[in-house]
Design a protein around this nucleic acid. Structure first.
Length: 397
DNA sequence: CGTCCACAGGAATGACGGGCGG
DNA sequence: CCGCCCGTCATTCCTGTGGACG
């Protein structure tokens, strides 16, 4: 198929009215099945409009349960209202998975109050001081949203949470109030009790969506995103069902629907079909994996290849020890110095957090305690992705 | 009921490159 | 330009542990 044909098809296609509505960062004006949460969070933050500091809030919920969307939605409305009543409210949104060091978090906070800070070179304490100074100059109430906060704490401890939670004692002209968001249900267990009580003045839990609710969400957005009669009957239910299997992840459901639409468009189809949804599922997985693999350090790729090889060869899922010897053998073949066992153990954990594998600690009694590892993506996709890298092609054989 | 396997994963430390402030 | 501090990756050394086996 010629490239120009694809362009023409997309131009002529009557499928998408506005595809941005299905993108993950789009915040709709209606969030179905989250009305209760919106009202509750709104109620918690409302006191800021009368000049008092809102309680800190802690929000739990699995990925794609609307935590971020609800928080952004409510704080956006809050800022709008504050403007009308001439109240000085600022919102700082930090995703601590992207900004995954205390330094970078402080940097983003500083930037949210208009202070520029270099990427590195100065002590974190100095960034903190500049942030405080910047905030005092504004004389505002700053609502700090720390999204995916468990990433930061697991990697770097809860020091900055402690510091941030006590910042109000230093401030005279301003205030901060915090919203912590996490998808780790057991996160509070690893927190220092002092931080837990100050950060979790109010706690909210976002339940997963079920398939029916996901259908509502999709239908709501599809009305605006697609032209009428462009979706086959089964499309939305299938997207919803697939996402419901992944613990009711609405983001996943929207991705599926959007990519299915894009595939239909590129084919020049008049309608989005169930088939497009299945293809979309494969494509999303492949994109995820190849993105991760591309940015992974070399030895991470070798470890992943080792796991793949073992899984193909053996019937029982491999353990850390087996993976390590396989990895050593691969290193030898590639004429590369191997890393230590300890490091590989960490890399396996990293692959786990990235979602490429699923690692589970098991005790086999007399025969020791280890971690058994399973690939969490289709082997076919690992193959495709490894072939893209010319240093790695052939490594799977 | 104690032992002991096969690891998990914490702590300390070091090498290294980037980007300051002086 | 230098010295300093940073984050990142890696090594070394280490203590901790669930449960089948004897």
């Amino acid at each position: 198929m010629e490239l120009e044909d694809i362009f023409l098809r997309v131009i002529k296609s009557g499928i998408f009215r506005n595809r941005d509505i299905l993108k993950p960062d789009y915040i709709p004006d209606k969030l179905p099945h989250r009305e209760r949460e919106i009202r509750k969070l709104g109620g918690i933050l409302a006191p800021v409009l009368k000049g008092s500091r809102p309680s800190n809030v802690f929000i739990y919920g699995l990925t794609g349960t609307g935590k971020t969307a609800v928080t952004k939605y409510v704080t956006r409305k809050l800022v709008e209202t504050a403007k009308k009543f001439n109240v000085n409210v600022k919102v700082a949104y930090v995703n601590t998975r992207q900004s995954d060091t205390p330094y970078r978090v402080l940097m983003e906070l500083a930037e949210s109050v208009g202070v520029k800070v270099p990427f590195t070179g100065i002590p974190a304490a100095e960034v903190y001081r500049r942030f405080i100074r910047g905030l005092e100059n504004l004389g505002a109430t700053l609502i700090v949203i720390l999204d995916e906060i468990d990433y930061l704490v697991k990697k770097h401890g809860d020091d900055i949470l402690y510091r941030l939670s006590r910042t109000n004692e230093i401030l005279s002209n301003s205030e901060i109030s915090m919203i912590g968001i996490t998808n780790d249900v057991r996160f509070s267990e690893i927190l220092d009790p002092r931080i837990k009580s100050s950060l979790g003045e109010v706690e909210m839990v976002f339940p997963p969506y079920d398939a029916v609710q996901l259908e509502d969400i999709l239908s709501e957005r599809a009305k605006k995103a697609f032209y009428e009669d462009t979706l086959d009957d089964g499309v939305i239910p299938l997207c919803a069902a697939l996402a419901a299997k992944e613990h009711g992840d609405a983001r996943k459901a929207l991705d599926l629907l959007r990519v299915a639409g894009e595939l239909a468009e590129q084919e020049g189809a008049r309608k989005v079909t169930i088939d497009h949804v299945w293809k979309a599922r494969d494509e999303l997985e492949k994109d995820k994996v190849s993105e991760i693999v591309r940015t992974m350090p070399f030895h991470g790729k070798l470890v992943l290849a080792s796991i793949y090889r073992l899984q193909m060869r053996k019937t029982s899922p491999p353990t850390t020890g087996e993976i390590y010897s396989e990895y050593r053998a691969l290193c030898e073949r590639m004429d590369t110095a191997s890393l230590t066992y300890r490091r590989i153990s960490d890399i396996i954990n990293e692959l786990d957090t990235l979602g490429l594998i699923e690692a589970q600690i098991v005790s086999r009694g007399r025969y020791g305690r280890t971690k058994i590892v399973k690939l969490n993506v289709q082997p076919k996709i690992i193959e495709e992705v490894m072939l893209e890298d010319r240093y790695l092609e052939g490594i799977l054989q």
